[in-house]
Amino acid sequence: MHLHTLNQSPAQSQVYRQALAAMADDDCLLLIEEAVQGALPHLIGPFEGLAGRLYVLEEDLVARGLLERCDDNARVVDVEGFVSLTEQADKVLSWY
């Protein structure tokens, strides 16, 4: 499994397209920084095919007041969860 992190909002940047193209069927995507917007129901569209493999960083949601607005299909993890995802991953790729 490869872990892909994305830090740009899908409402602002197209880089999420590269992350999705680079993701194999068992890879996971973690939304961090401004990309946490991608976990909101209104903006989750591009990530809908990632059921169970879409994660979003709790600290970055909380900082932006977005934790309660998060879509049920995004799995909220804290920084410790981020660390354990990197431990499980063979490679980590950052898309920014």
Partner: peptide
């Protein structure tokens, strides 16, 4: 295509983005 991108990532020891 996207499948070849995934294969390239898998087949290289180190990937820098």
């Amino acid at each position: 295509d996207a499948a070849s991108v995934q294969q390239a990532i898998a087949s290289h020891t180190l990937v820098m983005n």
